[in-house]
Design a protein around this nucleic acid. Structure first.
Lengths: 132, 132
DNA sequence: ATAAGGTCTCCAGTCACTGGAAGGTCAAGC
DNA sequence: GCTTGACCTTCCAGTGACTGGAGACCTTAT
């Protein structure tokens, strides 16, 4: 299976697949002509990685997840711990963005949005010692 | 005013302040010894940038905001448009993270987290064609 | 034979810093 | 005057996870 077929069936860009090989997430065979020759197992791994990435896991976490997946002696607790750490990080980011959202939203509401220069958004940026 | 004083009073790292000069956000004077010599205006600008950054504005947006701030003939509508675009982006990110959070949270709840290898998290990553 | 399209490698750029090396400057204490 | 230590300078490289592009090779169809 050539790389563009794999790209089509996993939804991952060709460049990304090559990159995943570069960093050692996959190791597809090579044909005589030097082309990568992907097995079903490679395909499966890439799909796995693609889904983990879509859940926001970082590359190193993907590597860990793949290792756990291939380890029949794993404890589900290890997987859960990894996922929970990631969830905590997501919650942290959501909270951070929510904070930004609230402040920004207030400022936008207060701004007339007309031809005049007076603007509470700029006033806040210029003066606010904190956004409490 | 030397750079470490500015760092102290703006809360920005020294490295970041130098970087902001590099990319042309500020242009502090230089003393005879080659040290940067920050004016109150530089300080004010850095504080402004720091607050815009803390609201999640990117560097180019900060540059635009600073330009609008210094333009007495600005229209508040321009500021509002910029802020609204950023708010939309934040909302998009929150929605994306929320989606991840929901999926991940379900999977974590379903995982026993014990010594056994069975794990719905890995099962989902390995098999799920989508996370609908 | 040629043209189109797929594949290869390698290099550079993204964003907003951050770390570190190597060296100049300054103020205090001896 | 000399040293010590804290400060300052520039420049280079690395971060995460790709992405774009150049230049060259391979394959398939006409």
């Amino acid at each position: 299976m050539n790389i563009s077929d794999v790209a089509r069936s996993t939804g991952l860009p060709v460049k990304t697949i090559r990159y995943y090989e570069d960093i050692g997430l996959i190791a597809p065979a090579r044909s005589d002509n030097g082309y990568r020759d992907f097995s079903d197992s490679d395909l499966h791994k890439l799909a796995f990685i693609g889904r983990a990435r879509s859940l926001g896991f970082g590359i190193e976490a993907c590597r860990d997840l793949l290792r756990l997946y291939n380890d029949q002696t794993r404890a589900s607790a290890d997987v859960k711990r990894l996922a929970q750490a990631h969830l905590d990080e997501i919650d942290r980011k959501i909270a951070e963005l929510g904070q930004m959202r609230d402040t920004l939203s207030h400022l936008i509401d207060a701004c007339a949005g007309n031809d005049r220069p007076d603007c509470p958004i700029l006033a806040d940026l210029a003066a606010a010692p904190d956004h409490a």
